[in-house]
């Protein structure tokens, strides 16, 4: 489904990613772990077209998408969330989701300005779709919350809304950047279930960056560990978590020996 081939991303003298190969199969949930600065977010930025890779390629269903405009990449079927949550804060909750249906809808300014039936119908459909997507998170983002401005949401709800917004673009592949960051244990548990349901109910292929090992353990078919832009381990959660290089990357040099 998603293939990353010999990818290198260089900023000046710094290689954030070097010579990275990753394959994600259809319907898989793959987690990417690694210490801060390992290049995980950079990987997402390259895949979604925000950065053009220095070398290497990114293939979606066998077609190259590397260096394409982010909007084009999204339209081809890759949606994402951001580590630092980038919602449209001054727009309402439901508008955040409705806005993301832009690429699949057709009303132009003339049909909207004239209030043509087609445009009204589409507006209704978009609203219904947004409501349905928001109800994916149970009662957390439903009812009166729809019309609330996004900035009034709690941190956890912002993360949920960001996922709903990404879903509204009808992706095939979903990239989640630290979805459980800043959440309490209960919310973390919830988001773990949500990620599982995303695959089963929405038929998605998911790539997750996550620091919380419980989440990683709970969701992953496969785990990939990065350090300094290089893949240091790949495999099942257990094999990666106990891999000496991974332990060393997290705890510093020498700690693997001491253990």
């Amino acid at each position: 489904m998603l293939e990353i081939k010999k990818l290198t991303m260089q900023f000046g003298a710094l290689k954030s990613i070097s010579d990275l190969d990753i394959t994600v199969n259809k319907g898989e949930i793959v987690s990417v772990i690694g210490p801060n600065g390992a290049g995980k977010t950079t990987l997402f930025n390259v895949v979604t077209g925000i950065y053009k890779p220095t070398e290497g390629d990114v293939l979606l269903d066998g077609k190259s998408i590397a260096g394409k405009d982010p909007a084009v990449v999204n339209r081809l079927g890759i949606a994402r969330t951001f580590q630092n949550v980038r919602l449209f804060l001054n727009m309402s909750v439901i508008e955040n989701v409705m806005a993301a249906t832009y690429a699949q809808t057709k009303s132009n300014i003339f049909s909207s300005a004239l209030g043509l039936p087609a445009s009204r119908k589409e507006e209704k459909e978009v609203r219904a779709k947004a409501e349905e997507l928001l109800s994916f998170f149970g009662t957390r983002l439903t009812g009166y919350r729809w019309e609330q401005p996004a900035y009034s949401l709690s941190y956890a709800n912002r993360r949920r809304l960001e996922i709903a917004r990404a879903l509204a673009t009808n992706p095939k592949v979903l990239l989640l950047d630290e979805p459980a960051a800043g959440m309490n244990p209960k919310e973390t548990q919830e988001i773990t279930e949500v990620i599982g349901r995303l695959r089963s109910e929405k038929d998605l292929t998911i790539l997750v960056i996550e620091h919380d090992m419980h989440v990683v353990e709970g969701i992953s078919d496969r785990v990939i560990a990065l350090d300094h832009g290089v893949k240091i381990a790949e495999g099942s959660f257990d094999s990666v978590a106990t891999h000496p290089d991974v332990v060393e990357a997290y705890l510093g040099k020498g700690s693997a020996d001491r253990k």
Partner: peptide, 22 residues
Amino acid sequence: TRVGRAWRTVREDPLASQSMGI
């Protein structure tokens, strides 16, 4: 409606907007 919402996303956060296919 659609275009107005998209304009507001552009004003709010063009990068996020782009990543949503706008």
